[in-house]
Design a protein around this nucleic acid. Structure first.
Lengths: 350, 350
DNA sequence: TTTCAACACGAAAACGTTTTCGTTGTCAAT
DNA sequence: ATTGACAACGAAAACGTTTTCGTGTTGAAA
């Protein structure tokens, strides 16, 4: 077992100073060709690589970005991570991942442990509990310490930082417009409670589409289910609610759901009630994940381009990190990028 | 914007030495209560937190573990990460994630950039290309440098390190035994090429079960598809192969597939051919992911407990890191943990 | 022979900690 | 008055780099 070699050891072996070794390796012209040769050969032989930690300490930057997401076993979020990791690798950054698990405390802890020098900036999507409590002190504190944050998807408008969001309103409108275009008039919405920004926005898009087509917004057709029902553990309860929705609205001819799970559940319930998809009921979901592609029937859905979103977020953060000309003034200007959605038509619509 | 405060600044403000501040904050009894009070109050006021990078450099350990996986948009792998992250958080470690994307080069690059001081040890699952090329130099080198590795799921027997694996052979046997118990006699296998360890092992389990029940192993019933067909981009090609399998074996009465995608594809093809599940054909998959739970019909499958596997892997690594009494001798003893599988019965079997 | 530039290299500081080992000053015991 | 112990603190090294600023040596120009 040969431990990693350092400049000091090379210097001692070759009987030169540490500075000489450092310069020789960086091809400084302060050093004679002879010495360079010697040093570089030796370094190659022992496969010297500079210690990242020492570099980080010296440069006061770690070339690492911290990503905090509520959940990783989730198509959209893992797709975003993939995008982040891709540009991070390209631009020579590392990615530290923290999971909030939708918990405020874990979000805070994760951020605090990372903010003490381990990373140069954050990319994050806010946990539901944080959105609910509306306690944003940890975001403000990190920003105040000069550490940039890029928020994505679940964002907080009041926080001054770069943001990348999916065009939820437009996306939902696309979906509902499609249903309307297909002749549906009693379109149900299955959404989350309003404090989850994406649920609120997608609801807004749904209503906008209806209003624009002068269709009535019928509250009975809107089901806002509790968060916990997004967990696999409460599937039956979710199914119950959806079944109730179907039974109380016999004229229902379409469903727009704000995520995959709600959409496939709607399809399952419809099938159970003897309704045919897409003939009796048409269904559109949100997120073009593995479920949408392999459900029966395959699900028409709104694709969010999570991979691209991740790339944009990472570029935004790294750009800011590297352009840090210490503007420092209070006139920092932040961007909000909006990622267009795409309607993917499959078998669940006509 | 107030930058993070350091010991030096506190020392200057309070007109004491850096050492005094450091000791006062750690409650050393070398320091008078008066001074402690003063320093601690000041530190609290400015919310001082020690700089992780400086600590890492001093202690020569980063309290960070590097995780390299082939793919993150994948139920099993993201479940493992969740497990790793959970114990990492508990035991005060960070998690850096690198994706090899099944590429040898990316695996090597990711490992090289992390191995230079950024992390204390690796948890990884080997990329397919690496398994195929059988080039393991990067693993040997990192281990030789004294950096521990824990391999999981896709492991390499020749490499001396801790391992955590799913009991693939037993798991497959359970599945096939179930099918046999249900009266099936012509059980097809849809697997990957043999160089992917899990494909090989699951094939072995399949054969073992047949042999133990004195059923013939019919090569025509074994479909080993190319890796690329695991990608969503080659769905049609995969479907073609599976359809061919069905057509050439009219007596086929069950399918055991080594992953979810193959299993749902088999169900889709069966349905297309007018076969009813589970009456005409019974299907069992591997990995209890979102697909299995929401496919139509829901899929009987072998659950791998990826979350638990991740926890075990992380504990194994951290234990080794913290017990590093520099054994250093060549008599290091490594463990291989085997995680039991579980048969989850659903609608695709009788 | 003197002077000066160019060359090749080394010393030291700095990044932010922790820790070892002094160095004072005070007070009690001899 | 001398010794010793103890309390309270500081200086400095160390972790591994990079970089600035010397410094000594050489050779050529004056």
């Amino acid at each position: 077992m040969k431990r990693k070699i350092t400049l000091k050891q090379i210097a001692k072996e070759l009987d030169v100073s540490i500075s000489t070794v450092s310069k020789a390796l960086r091809n400084s012209n302060e050093i004679s060709d002879d010495t360079k040769e010697k040093v570089q050969a030796f370094a190659r032989l022992y496969s010297y690589r500079p210690n990242n930690i020492a570099l980080s300490l010296k440069n006061r930057k770690t070339k690492t970005i911290g990503v905090i997401i509520p959940e990783i076993v989730h198509y959209f979020f893992s797709m975003v991570i993939r995008g982040i990791e891709r540009v991070a690798l390209d631009r020579h950054y590392n990615v530290i991942v923290g999971l909030s698990n939708e918990s405020f405390d874990k979000e805070v802890i994760n951020m605090e442990t990372l903010a003490n020098g381990s990373i140069d900036g954050f990319i994050l999507s806010v946990s539901k509990e944080t959105l609910f409590k509306q306690d944003y002190h940890h975001f403000n504190e990190t920003i105040n310490q000069g550490m940039p944050i890029v928020m994505f998807d679940r964002i907080i408008n009041e926080i001054q930082c770069d943001k990348v969001i999916v065009d939820d309103i437009e996306g939902s409108k696309k979906a509902v417009n499609k249903l309307i275009g297909n002749g549906c008039t009693h379109i149900a919405l299955i959404s989350t409670k309003d404090y989850v920004s994406v649920g609120r926005l997608r609801t807004e898009g749904y209503m906008n589409a209806l209003i624009e087509h002068q269709l009535p917004v019928n509250p009975d057709l809107i089901l806002k289910v509790d968060d916990k029902l997004e967990s696999e553990d409460y599937l039956e309860e979710l199914e119950g609610k959806v079944e109730q929705l179907f039974k109380e609205n016999k004229n229902l001819d379409a469903v727009f759901a704000v995520n995959e799970l709600y959409a496939v559940t709607a399809m399952k319930v419809a099938r159970k009630l003897g309704l045919s998809i897409p003939d009796d009921v048409q269904v559109i979901g949100f997120t073009d994940g593995v479920l949408s592609r392999h459900a029966t029937p395959t699900l028409t859905t709104i694709k969010q381009h999570g991979h691209y979103l991740g790339e944009q977020a990472a570029n935004l953060l790294i750009d800011r990190l590297e352009n840090d000309i210490e503007i420092d003034e209070e006139d920092e200007v932040y961007q909000t990028l909006v990622i267009e959605t795409e309607l993917i038509e499959r078998e669940s619509t006509k």
